[in-house]
């Protein structure tokens, strides 16, 4: 909104610019230097290390069985976590956005809670519920179901840490859109489902997409929580982020960077998609 307006008067923007033109240059320099030290050099390093000996080692690692299992597990985790959190996020947003009730702010903080809990604590809690000595441990063992140190536990961990994204992005959009159009649709005889599909969904689609992109990135990239519940067994319960750490600890730096570069690529794709969605919503804001 206003972010677009600010560039309209670049010439008159800074009255004192003539005397002190070194200030912006200095500040920009400091900002870029800091970002380089903390973000850019580390990011660049991932690509340099991964391909320093050409693409050969990268593809060799890509073909190793443990690596392929790691890729498959990572994708599977996202495939389960994203739809689950999509349903939860949409229901939550729908339930909360249009109502004012006592304790609403409290409920919103509760939904945000997974972001404030340390990933290791998340893993610990899952172990305490589903682990061998946990609440359901005995029952699960009796029925020969393994949750902790197996795929279901890993999925639970990644679902937990990526839970709030969709709701958090959709709620403000729903609040802003208001319910007039939906009421109109229902008055004209649309069913609830039709109203959702034809009226609500189109108006929240960018916010929803934004939330899904973030959910996916976090579900695939989660390390701490998954690491606690997975047991980190190579070729069995090791997702890509765990593979990175394990390979590094085994002094197989090349393998670690081959996995890291894949994840870094995922991060870049996430950022690009995010930017595209942000731009779309900005253009929409301007049209209104």
């Amino acid at each position: 909104m206003t972010s677009l307006l600010r560039s309209n008067h670049p010439k008159t923007a800074n009255p004192s610019a003539k005397q002190k033109s070194w200030v912006p240059t200095l500040l920009i320099g400091v900002a870029i230097a800091y970002l380089s030290l903390i973000l850019y050099l580390p990011a660049l390093n991932v690509f340099v290390q991964a391909f320093s000996k050409g693409v050969g080692p990268f593809f060799d690692n890509l073909l190793s069985p443990n690596f392929q299992v790691a890729i498959r597990l990572t994708v599977l985790m996202a495939l389960v976590a994203v739809p689950l959190n999509l349903v939860f996020g949409l229901c939550t947003a729908w339930a909360i956005a249009r109502r004012r009730f006592p304790g609403r702010a409290f409920l919103l903080s509760i939904i945000d809670l997974p972001f404030s809990i340390s990933p290791v604590v998340v893993g610990l809690m899952i172990v305490l519920v589903y682990g061998r000595n946990g609440w359901f441990g005995g029952w699960l063992q009796a029925n020969d179901i393994q949750v902790v140190f197996a795929f279901p536990g890993m999925v639970m961990a990644s679902v937990f840490v990526s839970m709030p994204f969709v709701a958090r992005e959709v709620i403000p959009v729903l609040e802003e859109v208001g319910s007039d159009q939906e009421e109109a649709a229902q008055t004209l005889g649309a069913s609830q489902w039709q109203t959702f599909w034809r009226v609500t969904l189109p108006s929240i689609r960018w916010g929803l997409l934004y939330g899904l992109i973030l959910t996916n990135a976090r579900a695939m990239g989660e390390f701490g929580a998954v690491s606690v519940v997975s047991g980190n067994i190579a070729g069995k319960t090791q997702s890509l982020p765990l593979f990175v750490e394990d390979a590094y600890k085994q002094y197989d730096t090349q393998a670690a960077y081959s996995a890291a570069v894949l994840l870094a690529f995922l991060a870049v794709v996430t950022l690009v998609l995010k930017e595209i969605v942000e731009r779309k919503t900005r253009i929409k804001d301007l049209q209104e």
């Binding site: 695939m220 990239g221 390390f223 982020p241 590094y248 994840l263």
Partner: peptide, 10 residues
């Protein structure tokens, strides 16, 4: 967006 283990590694 970057998984934390990749950040730690690099």
């Amino acid at each position: 967006a970057l998984p934390t283990s990749v950040a730690g590694l690099t």
